Amino acid sequence: MKTLMTVLVLMLAFCSGSLRAEPITAAEIAVVDGDTIDAHGQRYRMIGYDTPEVATPRRKVRADERAVALLAKERLGELLHAGTLDLTEVPCSCSKSALINGTCNHRRKCAILSLDGNNIGATLIAEELAVPYVCSANRCPRMPNWKRILEQQMKAR
């Protein structure tokens, strides 16, 4: 719970200042996976959380990870219809060189998708379909080890 609160406080701090939430409807959003959406002709990586991968060219995705990834994607789609949505575009955490050469965040923009004023990722974290993932101003930590996370979740049950 402390980690979730830290994530939420960091996200609120990130959103202060000139950033502004823009209302958006579920019809304007296509869910790519549990932490990525397409909206208004742009692809957005949601910040503050990470979900497992359905597929990635960087490594082989295990069946258990893919299963949870599909659940996270489906749940995100359900949440889009659960209340009022706002999309806030935020600066991505990339090095200056990645920003200059266009490789920042795999060419995705970064955003916070809020449901009734709360980061939608908080629900996915609470439901164990995501984990907190918070970057600094110009770099991100290593990606979560989903094999280990899923093994720990199974042991806890």
Score class of each variant (00 low, 15 high):
Val32Phe: 12
His106Ile: 02
Leu87Tyr: 03
Thr88Cys: 10
Arg62Asp: 07
Lys60Asp: 06
Ala55Asn: 06
Ala130His: 07
Ala63Met: 05
Met154His: 14
Ile125Arg: 12
His40Lys: 14
Ala137Met: 12
Leu76Pro: 01
Glu151Trp: 11
Glu78Gln: 11
Glu78Gly: 00
Phe14Leu: 09
Ile112Arg: 11
Met11Gln: 14
Asp116Arg: 03
Arg45Asn: 05
Thr56Glu: 04
Leu115Tyr: 02
Arg20Ala: 14
Ser93Val: 03
Leu19Pro: 01
Glu78Lys: 04
Pro144His: 13
Glu74Asp: 03
Arg20Leu: 11
Asn101His: 13
Leu99Val: 02
Val131Arg: 12
Arg59Ile: 00
Val9Glu: 15
Ser16Thr: 14
Thr25Phe: 10
Val7Trp: 01
Leu80Thr: 00
Gly102Asn: 07
Ile120Trp: 04
Pro144Leu: 13
Asn145Glu: 13
Thr36Met: 09
Thr51Phe: 10
Ala130Leu: 11
Thr25Asp: 12
Asp86Ala: 11
Ala126Pro: 06
Val32Lys: 12
Ser97Arg: 12
Ala55Lys: 09
Ala26Asp: 11
Leu115Phe: 00
Gly83Trp: 03
His40Val: 01
Lys109His: 12
His106Gln: 10
Ala26Trp: 04
Gly77Thr: 02
Tyr49Arg: 06
Asp64Gly: 00
Leu76Trp: 01
